[in-house]
Amino acid sequence: MAKLKLALYWAAACGGCDVAVLDINERILKVAELADLLLWPVALDFKYRHVEAMPDGHIDVCLFNGAVRNSENEHVARLLRKKSKVLVAFGSCAYMGGIPGLANFFSRREVLQHVYSDTASTVNPGGTVPLEKVRIPAGELELPTFFQRVRTLDQVVLVDYYLPGCPPVVDQVWAVIEAIAAGNLPPPGSVVGASDSALCDECERKKDEKKIKQFRSVATYRPDPETCLLEQGVICCGPATRAGCGAKCVKANMPCRGCYGPPPGVTDQGAKMLSAVASVVDSDDPAEVERIISQIQDPAGTFYRFSLPSSLLNGAHRKEIA
């Protein structure tokens, strides 16, 4: 059997996904046995022109991590789509927009203003901001265009499989690679490397009926490790999140943040989580309900932490952003 031709790419992401691949430890050697790596910017020195030179569909599988934030991300996404037989959205950012997607609550101007001027650690007396084109004596320099909005990979190109996680769990990554090598693939469009129910299925905490009188943050409250976090008023997105990670955060006494995305059948993870949490607020008095709900810090950011660009409203809707 011919060796699998594999490409890995890193777009708008933190790099954790690439680390997750490396985290398969000595099995990485087995990857090398199974596959020829045609592109992996974080580990190997390839140029885009090498990819451009390939015939279409030359790459068997491309694991693409990161969201599409700028014109370079988009360009490479289109390129790799053309050159790959199977394109996998790898990790939460490629799948749903991920943490970079939270920037969709703000306009490009606000993001640049914040990063190049407003943060406490920024020293920029000249007010220098990146320009797309700069003319220097040696010629014209070009930077990729910073888009107004973060998009998911499948909002730019057709995606064959989704492998969720921030980052995907190592064992799942390995299982997917093995399945690809064996040609044992589910129908296109499927989420792979995860299970088909919600996280609560994997969570071993004791679950009871839920009634929330007070919301709490893990920054100031240490939850009981045996009891369901939601019952303790800690917003845990587990009920509206696909299982598959092994409930790692919950085992570490931290609430699920929803990186595996919605369970099957759910279109908008944030809306579902919102609905579920609000439904069990334990009061029928509007003023008290408002008081309890006001204890939730940054509700949109909490419920859409990883899924904002893929959600129904995919970001803020202010005239400025349009």
């Binding site: 944030g270 919102l274 609000a278 439904s279 607020v281 009061s283 309900v289 949109a300 419920f303």
Partner: peptide, 10 residues
């Protein structure tokens, strides 16, 4: 009513 209160904030 409860959902609306939270939805309003979101």
């Amino acid at each position: 009513m409860r959902r609306y209160e939270l939805l309003k904030r979101v």
